[in-house]
């Protein structure tokens, strides 16, 4: 079936907006629809998408650390097997004492993602089943995937470095030195030190 006019996507946006009032839904491009929602009504939206709209496959749960806004954004990627549309549902929570609703009763595989997020970002999911240690063993620092975790400092404190090691150089400077050109002005702010 030809879908040039994004008919299916627009119908989906309409259906979502009819079901939920506090929801922003947009068509990003073909076969991709994005919806932002408050975290309190997130489980009901996921259930709605699964039971009524037929998005019965949870592809992935991702987490983005917006340190500037003080937010964690959790992205639930759902997939419709027959309409072939990815539905991205985004919900945010504040970084301090982050708590998200646990959804592993809707999709069991969500449990794995949630345990990983609990360990790597420190987001709590009330009622989550599973041991505290998942991938990291005996971790005592702040969760390592947070952006305020300084990996290099941690590595220098905990591991050894081979003496005389001269790599880990700035790529831009090395390329500029090799080619004999100057670094452009706009690129200088991205350089390492």
């Amino acid at each position: 079936m030809e879908n040039k006019e994004l008919v299916l996507e627009n119908t989906l946006v309409q259906a979502l907006q009819e079901g939920f009032t506090r929801l922003e839904a947009t068509v990003k491009r073909k076969a991709r629809v994005e919806a932002k929602i408050d975290k309190d009504i997130l489980p009901s939206l996921l259930l709605f998408a699964k039971e009524k709209l037929g998005y019965n496959h949870l592809s992935h749960i991702g987490c983005v650390d917006w340190i500037e806004d003080g937010l964690f954004e959790i992205v639930y990627i759902l997939w419709h097997p027959t309409e072939k549309i990815n539905l991205l549902i985004k919900a945010s929570t504040e970084r301090e004492n982050a708590i998200m609703p646990n959804i592993d009763y809707i999709w069991r595989q969500a449990n794995t993602y949630e345990r990983e997020m609990r360990e790597m970002f420190g987001i709590e999911f009330p009622g989550l089943v599973g041991r505290k240690d998942f991938i990291l063993e005996d971790w005592q620092d702040i969760p390592p995937m947070r952006r305020d975790f300084d990996t290099e400092k941690y590595v220098n404190e905990h591991f050894f470095n081979r003496p005389g090691r001269e790599d880990a150089k700035d790529v831009r400077e090395q390329v500029a030195k090799r080619s004999g050109e100057d670094i452009p002005e706009f690129a200088k702010k991205y350089s390492r030190k």
Binding site: D141, P144, F149, T151, H158, F159, F160, N161, R162, A168
Partner: peptide, 12 residues
């Protein structure tokens, strides 16, 4: 080398 989770020098 800058991963929080892998050791760098095995012979230590």
């Amino acid at each position: 080398w800058d991963s929080y989770n892998t050791i760098n020098l095995l012979d230590k």
